[in-house]
Design a protein around this nucleic acid. Structure first.
Lengths: 139, 139
DNA sequence: CTTGATGCAAATAGTTTGCACTATA
DNA sequence: TATAGTGCAAACTATTTGCATCAAG
């Protein structure tokens, strides 16, 4: 509560009900990767009267403020997660939809080398592995 | 012409005017990465009476047939390119929109290692570097 | 000639925006 | 209490689909 309002103020955002609720949802640690719809539904379930448009607006502001990171995985909806500072990439289990995070210093280095070799500097990157469990496809 | 109709038939697709025109556009080698809109506009410019819905349908069929690969880069529109068999990843110049292709065996290997270590097998992956020219941002 | 393919318009999905109203600083 | 924030509905963008018509085999 204290923590969250401080974070919002630090980002230059008024401490409003929707912003607090959404930030808390991310910080309470349950699920890490949420779509706007996910958040909207959870707000509804919690009797919070927050509109979907507000969810989108808040997420956009959070992203701009570096509170949250947006990912455009396959499947239409954008996915948001708290920005914990430590960059990582994602693996998505195509059967269950589960999102696994990983980080490879070597891959990061290789990416930089490649960009450099072409005369570029990396501004951002997106690496997503769509995977399937070795055990067996269904469950 | 011969080449294209053979390719369509091989994919089990009737050799129709829209399909031929779109396939030819990809094979004539000018631009490699095209959105549905890009294709639709070029058809209009060439006095071809092909609807946007048809462009989408043909692209979907081409993708299913492995004639074309679809990429979901940032920026809304999906981008399609001819499937030349040789897998590669992409670098996008954020200033000019230019798409540069690259391939790194090492990155591919590392990706497989990582997936493997987590008990998964890679079904597909997407790696895009958003880059900026070292020379200077504008031009 | 038969059925898959097409063009058009309407439908959809995800997200954004205009506007009158509400709540924070 | 002034202004940024909100909810709602309408707008928008990218893509898909229904349907009557057309054309490839």
């Amino acid at each position: 509560m204290e923590q969250e309002s401080k974070e919002l103020r630090k980002a230059g955002l008024k401490v409003t009900h929707p912003r607090m609720r959404i930030l808390q949802l991310f910080e309470e640690g349950g699920v890490r990767h949420l779509t706007a719809e996910d958040i909207y539904r959870r707000m509804l379930d919690n009797q919070e009267d927050i509109g979907l448009a507000t969810v989108y607006r808040v997420l956009t502001q959070f992203e701009a403020a570096g509170i949250v990171v947006k990912h455009n995985f396959e499947g239409g909806q954008a996915v948001y997660e708290l920005d914990r500072g430590e960059h990582h990439d994602h693996m998505i289990d195509v059967d269950s939809g589960k999102v696994i995070e990983f980080f490879s210093e070597e891959i990061e280095r290789l990416q930089n080398d490649i960009a450099d070799k072409h005369g570029y500097v990396i501004e951002g990157h997106s690496l997503v592995l769509y995977v399937r469990s070795k055990g067996g496809r269904r469950g």
